[in-house]
Write a protein that binds this DNA or RNA. Structure first.
Length: 445
DNA sequence: CTCGGTATAAACAACG
DNA sequence: TCGTTGTTTATACCGA
């Protein structure tokens, strides 16, 4: 969030909590921070770990989580929106699900983070804040007001900040190519203004930007561990096994996990997918630091069997290899990924200088009309099968003044696929695939 | 030093 | 009329 830091000294004094900005970044947003000490003392850790011992018991624990926590845990689901506070927040705190056994130390930590979050500006740019807000909305589109609301809800800092931030949000929406205005009549029935959504074409770039902001040490992506992360309570630092990529647990939070998974070419995490929710939930429990990807049909009970029989990595290129279900009740395994064809057509980290080659600035970009999903996207949806079609959001029509989507020429697409493949390779997908066999064990540390 | 990205402020028009 | 929304322009800072 450079510009925040880069404000003139006199301006800095106007912003509450600006002094703590640097030091409070971690604390403000948590970023999934879960220090070992904190983990060790976490009641969640003990409550889960105590029951653990065998993998069967672990599965029981997973069930427990599934049954007791998942109902209340929605990542951007309608309930979350309506309840005025999702259990998961971007700061990695549990807002209302600490449970009766919250230890005082954890409460202190939580309070400390909350206090920091009140004072400190989030380490995300406005574009990322908007992106997260939109991504976590059920319809993947939000009016400005709800974007305000989301930001306020997750980053209380802004409640006390000068109102200029709203102007900045609007400015970002309006100026940033990553965001697109959707005719409100096609979304909500009434209301002022339009709905805003993320341009799928730019989603990878936002994710990239998120990675950059979230993971200053981005090289970690290209230096996967030689051996997959072992899950041992006594082997810090623990790693998060994310679709073959290994990250330090402290470097990731649930929202980031979702976005990282989505950033993997060919993959898409449906944040409303119960398995992902569970996985993310687990992510926050000290005893589990894995988001595991399982093919369709691998249930809790057959996970172990699957991994002992599976001699290769999960072929995520197969549409049938991952669970795609619209009904949470249908899902009894822990697949965390719903397949989506890769939308990563560009690996550029720039958010606003990407389409200049194809367009003459914003005006041309906004010219024309189109549906929310490109033809490619439509194909994608069709590829995803019947179950998926039931979840397919209604096509959103761009306003007439929107530019048509850039045509991706086949050769360019190939190049991008290749680039995406390289990125995957760099990210350690291949080198870590062996680790997938460990993943089932790694759900308990 | 330049450039790109971002934040902030301000002005203005359109709209409910 | 007023508040909100959307757009545009200008300016400033930081990091590469």
């Amino acid at each position: 969030m450079g510009p925040i830091i880069g404000m003139s000294p006199d301006k800095k004094t106007e912003i509450p909590g600006m002094q703590e900005e640097r030091t409070g970044l971690r604390g403000a947003c948590g970023v999934g921070t879960l220090p070992e000490a904190e983990c060790a003392s976490s009641p969640l850790a003990t409550s889960v770990d105590r029951t653990g011992g065998t993998e069967d018991e672990e599965l029981t624990n997973l069930n427990w989580l599934h049954e007791n926590l998942l109902q209340n845990f929605t990542l951007g689901g309608p309930e979350a929106q309506a309840s005025g506070g999702p259990l998961f927040d971007i700061e990695g705190d549990y807002k209302s699900n600490q449970g009766p056994s919250s230890s005082s130390s954890q409460s202190l930590h939580a309070r400390g983070r909350e206090r920091d979050s009140l004072k400190s500006k989030p380490p995300f740019s406005f574009s990322l804040l908007i992106y997260m807000a939109i991504e976590q909305s059920p319809s993947k589109s939000l009016p400005v007001k709800e974007i305000y609301g989301w930001i306020l809800e997750h980053f209380p800092y802004f409640s006390n900040a000068p109102t200029g931030w709203k102007n900045s949000v609007r400015h970002n929406l309006s100026l940033n190519k990553c965001f697109r205005k959707v005719d409100r009549s096609l979304g909500k029935a009434s209301g002022k203004g339009s709905l805003w959504c993320v341009d799928p074409e730019y989603r990878p770039n936002l994710i990239q930007a998120l990675k950059k902001q979230h993971f200053p040490a981005a090289h970690a992506f290209s230096t996967p561990p030689a051996s997959p992360p072992r899950c041992s309570a006594s082997s810090p630092p623990r790693h998060l096994f994310l679709q073959g990529c290994s990250f330090k647990e402290s470097d990731i939070d649930a929202a980031t996990a979702m976005m990282l998974l989505n950033s993997a070419p060919g993959h898409h995490v449906d944040p409303s997918h119960p398995s992902f929710q569970l996985s993310v939930r687990h992510l926050h429990t000290p005893s589990c630091h894995c988001i595991s990807v399982f093919p369709v049909g691998v249930t809790l009970k057959t996970r172990k069997e699957y991994f002992s029989n599976s001699d290769g990595p999960l072929d995520l290129s197969r549409p049938d290899s991952v669970l795609v279900s619209s009904d949470p009740k249908q899902d009894h395994n822990y697949s965390s990924v719903a397949l989506q064809r890769c939308s990563s057509r560009s690996s550029s980290s720039s958010l606003s200088s990407l389409d200049e080659g194809g367009f003459n600035g914003r005006q041309s970009r906004r010219a024309g009309s189109e549906g929310f999903h490109s033809d490619e996207d439509s194909d994608l949806w069709e590829e995803r099968g019947l179950q998926e079609t039931s979840r397919r959001p209604p096509a959103i029509k761009w306003p007439v003044n929107k530019r048509p989507r850039r045509e991706v020429k086949p050769e360019v697409d190939e190049e991008l696929k290749e680039a995406a493949g390289s990125l995957l390779h760099l990210a350690g997908i291949r080198s870590c695939t062996e680790g997938s066999k460990h993943t089932v064990k790694s759900t308990k540390y």
